[in-house]
Write a protein that binds this DNA or RNA. Structure first.
Lengths: 238, 238
DNA sequence: GGGATCGTGCGGCGCCCGCCGAAACATTCG
DNA sequence: CGAATGTTTCGGCGGGCGCCGCACGATCCC
């Protein structure tokens, strides 16, 4: 009988408390849109099962959907949920030290991911942390008293990188995001997204295959060395 | 058969996906330690049920326990989990606009909470946001390019407030925490915790009853006006 | 139009898990 | 020591939910 009024927190958590739905969300952390079928295969469940899960996640505000023809494209609803899931995953993985990957293929993939990857819409992995460190060392990013760009940092985006860094809604300009391989913070927020988009646009980094993993191109390595003094391992192509 | 390797994210979310466990965590957001019995009564379940829930939460790293005699005291495991739960709750409450409180007592309590309360170990509610705004307006806290104290801000804590602001482990000095009544950010992190602790120690604010709600004392109102130019409604006692 | 592909609604099955009460254990107090 | 109180363990019950297969509608391609 205990009707026990609903607890919003529990309802939200319940959406992520299922292995299959969690796998969906983790896959979608690459920031791109997937079709229902792709996700079903990725998680190893029947299409009908995936369909129901997606409806729940959309209704719960975790995912946004976009229908095109016979496809149902689905992506994370926004940077906020992406951050939330990333935080949750980071916390969960801290408790469970990653077991050694079973297959060679998985090991190689894990290695590439650890080197450089996207985290929703910004850089992560050793590359992401290296960029964050370089910005900090040069006084462009302040981490000792919080996490914010300095005035020099603002100027760097405009003058050195050559991109406009405009406020976007209520999203913070700079934000710390916990890197789950490096166990340190890397740059997220508007600045992180703009930086990542710029690197991709200019071909300084490219995606490896269809996943989240990135590779620094030779041109990119030069540019990163030039702009931030990043060289060697962190900028190495895979 | 589908053994489907575990998904840490889902395991963590599952801990919070139950109404009773969620109620426990939300109650513990006051930052203090509760006994198992108190939580059981608070959530309206049998002691045996609460006991099992607590064991799960402790094993999952959400809660830390401390046994004293026949009592089992339990509190949130640390600022990190507190922040996680707060984020999750904030996101959940955004989707579900709070229904009007059913009872007069609840309404009065909600009013006090909205005015001033603790959020784990820092200030929240209109008071928390007012303090954050005042710090920002005076150039002590930078919010336009992220969220960090300025050098003036560091000096303010030492010279004006008269407290040492030392780094504590890996916890960030300043951090934005989403206020679920004001729907804006307030100051968290080491600085937020130190500030809140100082205000409580000096009797500038006091707890109302046993909950999270706070009241600004007359002495406190003067001090806040003095230090930050905060007056009127935000500093009003209740 | 015909055949392949993609997504969805519906039963039905099975299991997990949250709940309680009763009994046992631990601690404090008189 | 005995009573009172707080907590834990154990069965057992019931409901919720994640899974599939199948049938069907929609869409795209040839």
């Amino acid at each position: 009988m205990t009707v026990t009024s609903r607890v919003p927190l529990a309802d939200l958590a319940a959406l992520l408390a299922d292995g299959t739905r969690a796998r969906f969300c983790l896959a979608l952390l690459d920031g791109r849109a997937w079709t229902a079928g792709e996700l079903a295969r990725h998680a190893g469940v029947a299409a009908s099962t995936a369909s129901e899960h997606l409806s729940l996640l959309v209704r719960g505000g975790i995912l946004a959907e976009e229908r095109q023809g016979r496809h149902r494209y689905v992506r994370l609803a926004g940077p906020r949920v992406a951050q939330l899931i990333e935080d949750l995953a980071a916390h969960a993985d801290l408790a469970v030290p990653a077991p050694p990957p079973p297959t060679l293929r998985a090991a190689s993939s894990a290695k590439a991911m650890a080197a450089a990857r996207t985290c929703y819409d910004h850089l992560a992995g050793r590359l992401g942390v290296a960029v964050t460190d370089a910005l900090t060392a040069r006084g462009l990013l302040r981490q000792d008293t919080g996490f914010a760009l300095s005035d020099d940092g603002l100027a760097w985006f405009t003058a050195d990188l050559g991109v406009r860094l405009a406020p976007r809604g209520r999203r913070p300009m700079a934000k710390a995001c916990l890197d789950w391989t490096e166990r340190r913070h890397h740059l997220a927020g508007v600045a992180g997204a703009v930086l990542c988009a710029t690197l991709l646009e200019r071909g300084w980094v490219t995606r490896i295959g269809t996943g989240r993993a990135l590779r620094v191109t030779p041109v990119g390595a030069h540019a990163l060395e030039d702009l931030l003094g990043i060289g060697g391992e962190a900028a190495a192509g895979s």
